[in-house]
Design a binder for these strands. Structure first.
Lengths: 215, 215
DNA sequence: ACTATTAGATAGCAGTACTCTCTAATGGAT
DNA sequence: ATCCATTAGAGAGTACTGCTATCTAATAGT
């Protein structure tokens, strides 16, 4: 497949594909002449993955590059891959250096919740920082949620996450390297886009609840 | 309170506060002289709200301006406010003009889910578009979730949303205009930041589930 | 009187995701 | 054989975002 066909089939402009090649998001095609290279179905698949992460997942180009490097690294297993993706996605928030009481209280609340749930998570997990930062911001604005509400969220998400992780490796270990990559790409896009699905469903449910109560 | 004190108490640089004033995110202080204005606690509260939405909620300045305009509009009720905020947050995705089969299948799936759940949502609700776009992207990348999984998500979020909406108006209607604004700000920050809480909890639960299964 | 601070305005800056332009080489059509 | 479209590869340019810096004139506190 030539650049033009890749562009046509993916809906991505040629100049943009070239940009992704320069940025290392897309591996180069196999050159057939000085001014010609051939691209395969895997390029098309990768391109769709990039666009999904960018347009729907709102993931930055730099983060996508990091994620794809993990996807292409055959030495990492499913668990490490999930962790690496979470680390790449994780908030680039800087915790306050001084002793911010809101931050510290939020950190304690997050730690308590995690241990109450019996969750096994790394101390430096970015999601932990994200939770702390969000709880701290809620405290700062005087809108801290109740502990009971947090637990309800956690219980619900615990069940959803368990079933999703269980479906990650449907048929044993991957057969070929290409199949492994396709499977890993699918897991990544699932991780990122399911978050969007959850947000969309939550907003829809909220609109419904609000309509019933006030509408 | 003078600009300097507002800056010190909020942790936001003076130049940035001036920028928010210019952008209309922060109402001007009451001028006391040609080069002096006085700011109150409401400015401090609003500034914290802006920072929470920006830094944790990842909401753009333009969107925050739109949201704050709704918050300050005393003529809108809770339900309309929620709708307006969702509309402002909503994806700025453009649905494909041509008949994209993935998009259309995703749209049908979203509509089916909404009617299965018995949800009352506007046909043009941005969350509906977000759901459609995300399902379409999942289809394009060959990672479409199962209908059963979607229903499980929807059920869980339906319960969470109902309890959150129920807690929006804790003690009847607001007393003073200032109290109404404070309550509305709290509702907005809750809407936006609780989404982050959910994402953080999901990632934590996923890490735990993955650790138990593969770690 | 002097220094620090402020309002208000304008300009600049760093990062992001492209988009455009150019050159030289090549492929297919006529 | 010769044209025209297409391509690789490289570099510069663009539009937008969220600040940040600089300047002027006015004022407050010491």
């Amino acid at each position: 497949m030539l650049m033009g066909e890749l562009s046509r089939r993916s809906g991505v402009p040629v100049a943009t594909i070239k940009f992704y090649l320069r940025e290392g998001l897309l591996p180069p095609g196999t050159p057939t002449a000085a001014t010609r290279a051939s691209y395969g179905e895997d390029h098309l698949r990768r391109l769709r993955l990039i666009r999904a992460l960018l347009e729907v997942g709102e993931v930055s180009v730099a983060t996508i590059r990091t994620i794809l490097a993990v996807v292409d690294d055959r030495s990492v297993g499913v668990h490490q891959m999930l962790g690496a993706v979470q680390y790449a996605l994780g908030p680039r928030l800087t915790p306050p250096t001084d002793g911010d009481p809101h931050w510290e209280a939020a950190g304690r609340e997050a730690d308590d919740l995690i241990s109450d749930m019996g969750w096994i998570v790394a101390p430096e997990a970015p999601a932990r920082t994200l939770l702390t930062a969000t709880l701290a911001a809620l405290r700062r604005t005087g809108s801290a949620p109740s502990g009971a509400g947090l637990h309800a969220y956690a219980e619900a998400l615990s069940r959803l996450a368990a079933s999703e992780v269980a479906s990650l490796e449907p048929a044993g270990s991957p057969e070929s390297p290409a199949a492994r990559i396709a499977l890993t790409e699918s897991a990544v896009v699932g991780m990122v886009l399911h978050e969007r699905v959850i947000i969309a469903l939550r907003r829809l449910a909220q609109e419904d609840a609000s309509a019933r109560r006030y509408g």
